[in-house]
Design a protein around this nucleic acid. Sequence first.
RNA 1: GGGCGGUUAGCUCAGCGGGAGAGCACUACGUUGACAUCGUAGGGGUCACUGGUUCAAUCCCAGUACCGCCCA
Length: 884
Amino acid sequence: MLDKTYEPASVEGRHYARWEKDGSFKRGQKPGADAYTIVIPPPNVTGSLHMGHALNNTLQDILIRHKRMLGLDVLWQPGMDHAGIATQMVVERQLDAQGIKRRDLGREKFLEKVWEWKAESGGTITGQLKRLGASCDWSRERFTMDEGLSEAVLKVFVELYKQGLVYRDKRLVNWDPKLVTAISDLEVDQKETQGKMWHFRYPVEGEEGAYLTVATTRPETMLGDTGVAVHPEDERYKHLIGKHCVHPLTGIRLKIVGDDYADPEQGTGAVKMTPAHDFNDFEVGKRHDLEMINIFTPTAQINDEAPEKYRGMDRFEARDAVIADMDALGLFEKAEDHVHMVPYGDRGGVPIEPYLTDQWYVDAKTLAKPAIEAVDSGKTKFVPEQWTKTYYEWMHNIQPWCVSRQLWWGHQIPAWYGPDGEVFVETSEEEALAAAKAHYGKDVELTRDEDVLDTWFSSALWPFSTLGWPNETPDLVKHHYPTDVLVTGFDIIFFWVARMMMMGMHFMKTEPFHTVYVHALVRDEKGAKMSKSKGNVINPLDLIDQYGADALRFTLTSMAAPGRDIKLATSRVEGYRNFTTKLWNAARFCEMNDCLPGREFDPKSAKETLNRWIIGEVAKTRSTIDEALASYRFNDAANAIYQFVWGTFCDWYVEFSKPLLNGEDEAAKAETKACAGWILEQILHLMHPFTPFITEELWEKLGKGADQPLITSSWPDLGEDLIDQAAAEEMDWVVRFITSVRSVRSEMNIPPASKMPSFLNDADDKAKGWLQAHWDLISRMARLESYVLDGEAPKGSVEILHGGAQIVLPLAGVIDLEQEKARLEKAIKKADGEITKIDKKLSNQGFLAKAPEEVVEENKARLTEEQDARAKLQASLDRILAAM
RNA sequence: GGGCGGUUAGCUCAGCGGGAGAGCACUACGUUGACAUCGUAGGGGUCACUGGUUCAAUCCCAGUACCGCCCA
């Protein structure tokens, strides 16, 4: 006997362990079957499960479990990325606490520490994904720093280099002075900041008293100024082009250049140029051959290029010093409040510096072409489609991708330098040495590039590197690549999706997935993004503890409507927890009545209308779910099963079955037992992808047990031929009969316990037959004690419209006639409203002429129906009035 | 500034050219042998606004207002 309530905490772990032990998640168990493959968006090794992960992985798990049950050779490829910056920061912080500095430790020792950290505390998210129920093939788990994946990285880097698609260049990069590394454009957050616009005067060389006023938000960069730009057509300054200003602090001659970049409308129209520390100035500087003076150390202190007094100051200190010095010289004009954008490093959290360094770049523009083409041609589709635009937007304006990072944790760049700086890019030191020998004609010493690659460089290879590319198992790659669908949030379309597309197209010649399903962001109840600083984070693990993993999964699924963010309220989770309880109790009912799943039953053989009806309903539900999942409408799928289980099976079928299960008709009883058990079996199967734990638990307890687990059983194959329209019509009539009587009873304040007689008047033969056939359950559920067909009811009875017939309840003396009068008048008013509306439509010539015939017919039928109903209501009202 | 999305019941959201829907919340009643994490019934909406297209608009188009996101 099942316990009275379902306790998720006591069963979830057991089932997960069991599935794992059985190897249920493993690929390759269906010889000859088509593959279905999803690669997990690799979570960060330092990360822990947040709501976004919970949603993302629930959706993937639903697809995976569904396809697994459909008999495909399913691979859900799990793993993590090494999160270069984040991980290095974590370990450095730990060492700091022990008073150890990374630099003192040395590269090799430090990396040992990182691996130690990974072994001890990395990857907590893996265990958390298991708690969610994620059925990944853990036997194939990969890590971007694994040997195999690292080999893929080396091969890709070297090949791209040899094809000229990776190159070294000296340009301005986004430099994080806290982490002391370059970062990519995408890792920079622009933050609106209240600052000041400072106006200073630069004296013009050789013209006593003449000066140019320039404005800047960053006075400290003046120490690196090498020019002033004005618009070439600007009458105020035209004559100065070619002349110089003299920098009052550094003494440097600032060339005055004419360039369109200077906007005459903006400020004074004269712009100071710091080509080594500003992206725009850099471009202008290149055009006019301005000197580039780097005034910062890697940690953003003033270096030796600046006058001595500023050296060693940090950038903010230098700002104050520059302002004070210019003021002392009488060259400070004014300062205005000014809101502007300041770039911040998304990891380090300090303002980034545009910084002139040598870095490695990927020629993203070239790689983007086939990746764009793959989407153009429809080989890869975005769902919802609108994200295609976002993808194009990025791809068409793509910039060179800076992939080198001045870190230790990551894939060290396979580039070696000869004594004269000649670079040799090879997959190993031996090959580099060999190449160097060929180049120099003798053995030379090489030094390896210190830097590592951007983590996303390795993530970009994920769909094929995880399958074993470039080595071993070519069959595996062939079988599972291209993968099927990528499930991800829109926030990493640029970071990850676009880059996987580029690398996939280049190295595999085929798109990495045919569909990119982009899901919503999970926000808090009020729609705010969840963040630690706001303190509005809901931890999915807390919800799992409180309500069970199934409830959380079902909540996220039912809210995962395409193209919308999810505002998560815990009341929703509670509601779906109640749903799992409901299922549990329905199963308990089945158990008590010996209606067990897993037994032989042929739904086609069912004779009872009730059973034929519910069989048809479950068949419809199955196809709704399949269609919804095929088009990634997860919410529709979840709502269909919810509606069927609660609204149809529990609310009606279970109640209807009671008289049969307790009745005398042994054949009907046996069929109903078998059928109810079979329906429960279908429910457990259909719900399994959404709520794997409770369904497996019920299957184990009531069905075929742990030896034939649900997870690897077959998805229901229920054909259209199981849908019996006549049975549906009949049961619908019964349901509406009961609902109508209940409604009137409730409105008339008839005590629920009291039974009453009834009449069915003006019914056709079919309806009369239905009433007789289903009297047992109608009388039970509508609390009626008898019926008379076409009898004469006493005056003052309540008359209820039911289809073309009337249900009459002789309640004279029991009910309040005034109240009944009001009820009928309200119903008449409603009918009148409908009649007026339809009448208006039907008297419109345009409508009759242009609307499709079936719409016109439908409206005509409705009009007749409403008029008929109105007439009967009026007659009832007349009788009530007569009785008053 | 450029792009994208949203505005439907008190709340969270579906729907999307021809009869306004769900869950939660609310109200009333209710321990009939699965279930009070429940049952039965009920109230509640000029589908943001203004125009246009159409026989017909919550739905399509244009504009306005407000909200949100992405990119400069």
